[in-house]
Amino acid sequence: MDTVSSLIFSAVTIMTPLLLAATGGLYTELTGMLNIGIEGLMLLGAFSSVVSLHFTHNIVLAILIGTGSSMLLAAVIASITLYLKANVFITGLAANLFASGITTVLSFHIFANKGVVTFPELPQMPVLFERGTEAVPVLGPLLFGHTFFTYLSFILLFLSYVVLYRTPFGFRLRATGLYPKSLISVGLSPKRYQFIAFLISGFFSAVAGAMLSVNLGAFVPNITAGKGWVALVVIFLGQKRPVGLLIASFIFGISEAFSNYAQGIWHIPSDFILAIPYIFTLVAIVFYSIYDYNRQKVE
């Protein structure tokens, strides 16, 4: 493969977990809840799915267990935030802390190893439409030869679009974030929709995490490495719209693919590469607040 094709190909690989997590985060974001816990939900999903795959050798069961555990944690965040009236930011952070603690503790308990746990016996994730990758320029590496997670992320994104914009549930969910009083005035509970949104976000984050660990055939501590935060940025950059998420996550994918490539050539320290998403987010948020400030000033 030439440089451009391989860049595009790895961009798609990088963007897949971002897109999945961001799609899930879109639900919470649209109900007006800032889901800081995506990172932790992904991490827990990554751990529990790869470990259960190791024990069951059944990918469906593994993903069920992975998503189940993340949804449980999401339910904890949601219950404490909504029904015990806690600060959503603090509970999200707690979930991140909890996830990193519990994965290490369980990894030590099960494998007597706090570091990288590899599962060499796990088969490589099969790739689909392999032949297409090199047959078609640009679109080839974009669309073909990826694992089923990538295709799943596209399908789930489309489904989410339908759910959010074409079903009564979606209308109510979006109304929750846009103006919760509109639901209260017709006797619906905004909290209920926020709770469900958290569960959905837990599901998507878990699938995103599962992709990271299952593709690798190993669990690395802190395998998510800030991807949950980047997913939040993807939501903001994508203007909270499904197509926007697709574009924004591809931008992140291609920029990370490029910086990985650049790192190899110009020896940029990896810590700087890791810092890029945070700096990028910071700049985006500052610009957004300047825009918002000026808009409100006019009114």
Binding site: P168, F171, R172, R174, A175, L178, Y179, K181, S182, L183, I184, S185, V186, G187, L188
Partner: peptide, 22 residues
């Protein structure tokens, strides 16, 4: 009908009217 509007600006008239009973 409350003193302050309870409508979602981003939705159409019909979408606001049927919300919760679509």
């Amino acid at each position: 009908v409350q003193q302050h509007v309870t409508l979602v600006d981003e939705f159409t008239v019909a979408q606001n009217v049927v919300l919760g009973k679509e």
